[in-house]
């Protein structure tokens, strides 16, 4: 199959649409996930309210702001796959099917990204809306500061998240134990994305480091853009920078993987 220019243009949107549709068939699982994300959101909200009652204005948030932060970051779990997964790649590497993917006349990375964007679009609605709405009903959340910039920030966050998960998945080509890698990714992502606590209250140099790492682009930054606690232009530039770095790294690894699989035969 030779892909002409026109085919390549329509291929990736079509893959995104398939990704969307495929995940839409698991609506029960998505609803269950949304339910769990909401329950945890409620628990986190109470703990953070207690902390903010002791220290009003901590990290630049007021109580309403930190409640909003909690439910927004819980809503990010699905679309950003903060607990890992979402890609078929590790499975395909384990079974050796990846060799077929690598010889396709289309970029493996773009292929996966397209499918992942479709997945994220579905989960943004199915797993993002319920925690946000329930948070609004139970506690009241503030209105978005810059809605358009927030949506752009979520989209960029998905790309950063994909860039990271793609690297982790592809690393399975070299590190035989993908479960260990998955655990490592889970730990750094949940902690440094701002899912457990706002990174703004991480103390000292540890906080500065956490805020500069790519994982903050997956939950902390979109939430800050929503709340207006971060300037949209700077925040989006930060996310775009990490998206570019991770995608470039992923592209280099794809090349190396292709040489390894095609030349050495796996």
């Amino acid at each position: 199959m030779i892909l002409g220019h026109g085919a390549a243009v329509s291929l990736y949107p079509r893959l995104a649409w398939y990704g969307f549709r495929r995940h839409a068939t698991y609506w029960a699982a998505a609803l269950a996930g949304a339910f769990t994300n909401t329950v945890f959101g409620v628990l986190r909200a109470y703990v953070l309210i207690a902390l903010w009652q002791a220290r009003p204005g901590l990290g630049g948030y007021d109580v309403a702001g930190v409640v909003t932060y909690t439910f927004l970051t819980q809503a990010c779990i699905g679309p950003m796959q903060l607990f890992g997964g979402g890609l078929d790649l590790p499975q395909r590497i384990r079974t050796g099917d990846v060799a077929l993917d690598l010889v396709r006349p289309a970029s493996l990375q773009l292929w996966c990204l397209s499918e992942d964007l479709g997945r994220a679009a579905y989960l943004f609605v199915a797993r993002g809306a319920p925690p946000t709405l329930l948070g609004a009903l139970l506690f009241g959340i503030v209105a978005p500061h810059a809605p358009a910039a927030f949506l752009a920030s979520v989209a960029l966050g998905v790309v950063v998240s994909f860039g990271w998960r793609y690297i982790v998945a592809l690393a399975t080509c070299w590190v035989m134990d993908d479960r260990g890698l998955a655990v490592f990714s889970l730990v750094v992502t949940t902690f440094f994305s701002g899912l457990m606590l706002p990174l703004a209250i991480f103390p000292g140099w540890f906080g500065s480091l956490a805020r500069a790492l790519p994982w903050s682009a997956m939950a902390q930054v979109p939430a800050d853009v929503y709340l207006g606690t971060a300037g949209p232009a700077r925040a989006l530039a930060f996310q775009a920078m990490w998206a570019a770095v991770l995608l470039a790294l992923g592209a280099l690894m794809t090349g190396a993987a292709r040489r390894k699989v095609v030349i050495q035969g796996g």
């Binding site: 995940h23 068939t25 698991y26 029960a28 699982a29 996930g33 769990t36 994300n37 945890f40 779990i77 699905g78 796959q81 903060l82 607990f83 890992g84 997964g85 979402g86 997945r119």
Partner: peptide, 10 residues
């Protein structure tokens, strides 16, 4: 029941 669902918990 559905074979493999997309992963992700909590």
């Amino acid at each position: 029941p559905a074979a493999d669902e997309p992963s992700g918990t909590a």
